[in-house]
């Protein structure tokens, strides 16, 4: 998947592939000096022992990963982490995904479809090049809508616009599942709150160990401190404090730049 900065990795990890469920994530470390980064799994093939991750190149670690070739190895991969999404037959569910969140959405949507749900998909991104897995999503979803911010592909605008239309028109929708940038999840939740529509979101805070040890991934849900790695990553979107999450996630932006500049030197 060589669409600019979005990259797909198929990692051979048979033990993880045998166990991992939709919504769960892995943590990987590229090399000896690397940091541990969490990535939610986009797909798995338990028979071939392969897990698939899809990520956007944003910092040093993802840039390093881009430089890897087929057949190279990653130093450490650990998983499955987090609680899996609770899959049940709700009837009709709307799956909303933005950017690389579509990768994770694909895995979750597949599970909901297999459980007998009627799945409506809404996927969006900044422009045409950043829309991923469209044909895969099309195969899963009963209906699929694509949006781009600049209108270069599909509908022009944000994912919230078609979502609002669905919520207005359809009365059989029982659940909304949203994953993507924090701002997108926040807007989706603000919208569904008006309709009193149950909404699940999958959060992606800064994390180190991913096993509940460091507490770095703490998020405020329903005014209680929760650890995203062991209590999540899925939470009831209406009770999540998105402002706090946004602020906590931007703490290391400066360090990320330092790290990238250092590696260029």
């Amino acid at each position: 998947m060589a669409k600019g900065t979005i990259i797909r990795f198929d990692i051979s990890a048979p033990k993880i592939a045998a166990k991992i469920k939709a919504g769960q994530f892995i943590i990987l470390r590229v090399n000896e000096t690397g940091e541990r980064i969490p990535l939610t799994v986009a797909d798995k093939d338990e028979f071939a022992g392969i897990i698939t991750i899809i990520f956007q190149v944003v910092g040093k670690t993802t840039a390093l990963m881009r430089s890897l070739n087929e057949g190279d190895t990653i130093k450490d991969v650990v998983g499955p982490l987090g609680k899996p999404v609770e899959i049940h037959n709700a009837g009709t569910v709307v799956m909303v995904g933005g950017g690389t969140g579509i990768a994770i959405l694909h895995h979750v949507a597949k599970a909901f479809k297999n459980a007998g749900n009627n799945v409506i998909g809404i996927i969006g991104a900044r422009d045409k090049d950043l829309i991923i897995l469209e044909s895969e999503m099309e195969a899963i979803c009963d209906e699929l809508i694509v949006t781009t911010d600049d209108g270069s592909y599909g509908q022009r605008g944000f994912v919230t616009q078609p979502l609002q239309k669905y919520l207005d028109e359809r009365y059989d929708i029982k659940l909304v599942y949203a994953i993507g940038p924090i701002i997108m999840m926040k807007n989706v939740c603000n919208l569904t709150k008006k309709y009193n529509m149950p909404t699940m979101v999958s959060l992606n805070p800064v994390m180190i160990d991913g096993t509940g040890m460091c507490g770095g991934c703490r998020v405020k849900v329903d005014n209680k401190t929760q650890f995203c790695c062991v209590d999540g990553p899925d939470f009831d979107g209406h009770t999540v404090d998105f402002e706090e999450l946004e602020k906590r996630n931007s703490l290391y932006l400066k360090d990320e730049k330092t790290s990238l500049l250092f590696s260029i030197k």
């Binding site: 000096t33 180190i208 360090d255």
Partner: peptide, 16 residues
Amino acid sequence: RMNLMKAYRFPEYDTP
């Protein structure tokens, strides 16, 4: 961060 990820050697090590 400090001991396991050796953050005190940032940016040689990636963890801030």
